[in-house]
Amino acid sequence: MTALRPEREDLYGGTPYEPPIDEETVALRIPPPESVFGGEPMTASDAPAASSVTGTTPGGRAARRKAAKRRHGRHGGAPEATRQPEGQEGHEERDARPLSRVEARRQARARKPSAAVVASRAVGEVFITTGVLMLLFVTYQLWWTNVRAHAQADKEASSLQDDWANGKRNPGTFSPGQGFALLHIPKLDVVVPIAEGISNKKVLDKGMVGHYGEDPLKTAMPDAKTGNFGLAGHRNTHGEPFRYINRLQPGDAIVVETQDEYYVYKMASMLPVTAPSNVSVLDPVPKDSGFTGPGRYITLTTCTPEFTSKYRLIVWGKMVEERPRSKGKPDALVE
């Protein structure tokens, strides 16, 4: 207020407080503390009550500064309640300071894995690598060999049919690995070239069926008046043309197509398991086949059980029709 106002007594009936006048100067001086009620001057008797109401700390400017430092921290920082404990601050300071060479070496040795950890890691990597290699090998055997063998067999079948159409191949004696006929098993949807010999590298691994044409396991050709036309083929991998011959039933057709003829056989009997050394199944009158005399027979041989070569599975058939190609396909091949 800029207007004059009468002096009032303080709240407690005393006279108004007036600071002593500096006798030496009339320069600026600290104003008297105001009353908590309306800003009126406060008497000396009011000081304790005012400090208790406003929360100010008695004792002068120095005491108030100390109290402010305790509440807000030095230089206006965060209150003491929000400060980190002294132990934690010291820990952070120790982490921030640069390490000595001895401490750095000690920490490096502590981080270095032990010999047992290194050995366990090496063993684990060996196992993982071995597992990956085994998986790749299985994929190659079960998938890629079939893809490659089917491609090779299809190529040979196409080449064989083209040569027949052009008259380049004549019936007779064939060299090992040479294709000379096609085998049809309609029930199994099998059409595969027949090549001379039972070599894995030259014949069977290329997805073809091999003819037992060499001593001591030499068998007859289809055009022979009597005899046993023996064939071998993979049951698993490399095209697996004989994988499902165990599903054949008596009466199912097995057809051999050559340049001039169709030879139609009917499935007659099966030997589910026999030893690989049982070559009597290729005799002109095969043992255990049920045939009692000479005839025109076909024998299919493959491995069993699947994915092993421990035993052999044998299927026999008997010729029921010989049909010239000029008369068209036999009924067994007509859809």
Rank of each mutant, 00 (worst) to 15 (best):
K218Q: 15
T219L: 08
G213P: 01
A104L: 00
V138M: 12
V209E: 01
S289M: 01
R61S: 11
A44H: 13
L204F: 07
E80R: 13
H91S: 13
G167A: 03
S100L: 05
F37S: 09
P305M: 12
F291K: 00
P324N: 15
V138S: 07
V315L: 14
P272V: 09
I314Y: 00
V126D: 11
Y140I: 00
A332P: 04
Y265S: 11
T145R: 14
R5N: 11
E103H: 06
G131H: 06
V102R: 05
P113W: 03
L282F: 13
E103V: 12
G230A: 15
G251L: 11
P241H: 08
K310V: 05
I185L: 05
L231M: 04
G59E: 12
R323G: 03
E322C: 08
G295E: 08
L142E: 10
V191Y: 00
G131K: 09
P284L: 02
A119S: 10
R169P: 00
T129L: 11
H72A: 05
W316E: 09
E257V: 02
A151S: 10
R121G: 13
V117D: 10
R97K: 15
W143K: 01
Q152F: 03
L28Q: 02
P305Q: 09
M1N: 14
G317M: 09
E86L: 14
A96K: 15
T302M: 07
R312K: 04
R97D: 08
G290S: 00
Y140Q: 00
A195R: 03
A157Y: 03
A181Y: 07
M208R: 04
E93D: 11
Y262S: 02
D215N: 07
S280F: 03
R5E: 09
G60M: 04
D95G: 12
L217I: 13
E93Q: 09
S120E: 08
E335C: 06
P276T: 13
A68P: 04
V334N: 14
R243V: 09
M42C: 06
M134K: 08
A68Y: 07
K225I: 01
M1S: 15
E7M: 13
P85D: 09
K206T: 13
H72Y: 10
R109P: 06
G39M: 12
Y212E: 04
V147R: 04
Y244V: 02
L248W: 08
G59N: 13
T302Y: 05
T57P: 12
W164P: 00
F229K: 01
L271T: 10
R235D: 02
P276H: 08
D10E: 13
V26T: 06
K66P: 06
D288Y: 03
F174P: 02
V256R: 02
A3E: 15
P193R: 02
T301S: 14
G87W: 11
F127P: 05
Y265E: 12
E125Y: 09
K112C: 07
D154K: 00
K225G: 04
F37N: 06
E18V: 04
Q84V: 12
V279T: 14
T304I: 01
S199G: 07
D154I: 04
H75N: 14
L11M: 11
Y12N: 10
M134S: 07
Q141K: 12
G210I: 01
V285W: 03
R111T: 00
T54N: 15
T237F: 14
L217Q: 15
S114V: 04
M319I: 05
T226Q: 14
E9N: 05
G295C: 05
R101A: 08
